[in-house]
Design a protein around this nucleic acid. Structure first.
Lengths: 200, 200
DNA sequence: CAAATAAATTGAACATTGTTCATTTTATTG
DNA sequence: CAATAAAATGAACAATGTTCAATTTATTTG
């Protein structure tokens, strides 16, 4: 049995990631505790630190899973329609519904901060690209004579705008607005932007 | 001297707020520590808790000051131009420059979270309105036949979009883009939205 | 003004965290 | 099977927000 060690190591890592994921999903990133994670994963507190450098590394892995799920969701959302403006609306709407339906996991993507001095590792930075890349194609159809780097920049800008709307809407600092109202507003906004892009 | 108590109490509160503000401005919300605040304010650790319920109350007061400064800045930004589209562009640009020039204080407005179970007090929620209210007037000029509540909603939506762009741009997860580049992109985006609103 | 009372100040103590470490257990290797 | 390397364990540590009993300071009362 060459690799019992490695097998157990991998099992512990995924158990810890799943435990952290469950906690974040249920109670939010703020309530995540090392001791709870270890208990849920069925290991001692110290073992968490043989499997991962620290809690932040664990959170990055949870966020990795969330980004992957978001990615496949956006992928299919973009396929439901044909016209580029409709694709952008569908992407925005899909993003809203994902965020609303996975609030704590989605919030963790943007609320998490590395400890002072540390920066997000490159492999995870690249995973964040999934947030924009689906926007680029329909956008380039709308604005065919856009240079490649401008396209990337404008895709990121459009994502950021949609994200801002979704983000502040879901904050629910006062009363909760039904998601379908938000969806209507968001689609209206995207339609306005698309109109602005194509007029003039 | 009726009120020496009250005088000292007020002095301590402002000293603590200023100490917290200085720390947040210099090192960011994440590095804020009760012991540092007390030392800077020249009082014992325990005194912080006779003047404020907890650290969160202190942070709210710091954010209050930041929102007031942001408010007067937006006020003057809106006055620099006449046409509603230009006013909206000026507001967005002003917002970007404020955020870029007061990064830690501005970030604290959105990064701060109340402890579990607690919610932001009403007086402070209302102060956040300063973020949208300046948008409503030019927006109503652009869309004269908008109902009052729709106007408020769309002003909030437009703010959220601009905030999202500014927010993600300033995150600087990779390389820092010059503010004037961001400003050009942001103004371009606002112009697109305005065009989309008026073409129809 | 002096004594009594109320409030505020103080820093030590407490509770909760993330992380480390010496010890023990477990897998791998020779 | 013995020797070694790796991992598991939970007690201990350090940092942090908050509380508390004791002390000092301001106000009120006789």
């Amino acid at each position: 049995m060459a690799g019992l060690r490695e097998t157990k190591r991998r099992a512990l890592r995924t158990a810890l990631i799943e435990a952290a994921r469950g906690r974040i999903e249920a109670d939010g990133l703020d309530e995540l505790r090392a001791r709870d994670i270890a208990r849920d994963a069925g290991c001692a507190l110290g073992s968490l630190y043989t499997a991962f450098d620290d809690i932040d590394a664990l959170i990055l892995h949870v966020n990795s899973i969330t980004l992957a799920a978001l990615g496949t969701m956006l992928e299919t959302a973009a396929q439901t329609t044909q016209a580029p403006g409709d694709k952008l609306a569908a992407l925005a709407s899909g993003y809203l519904h994902f965020a609303a339906g996975n609030k704590n996991l989605w919030s963790a993507l943007f609320d998490h901060r590395m400890p002072a001095g540390m920066s997000v590792p490159e492999w995870h930075l690249q995973e964040h690209a999934v947030l924009f890349i689906h926007i680029a194609k329909p956008l380039s159809t709308l604005k065919p004579d856009l240079a490649e780097d401008d396209l990337a920049i404008q895709a990121r800008t459009l994502f950021s705008a949609v994200h801002g709307i979704v983000s502040i809407s879901l904050q629910e600092r006062t009363i909760a607005v039904p998601v379908e109202h938000l969806d209507a507003q968001l689609r209206d906004f995207v339609a306005t932007v698309v109109r602005g892009m194509t007029s003039a």
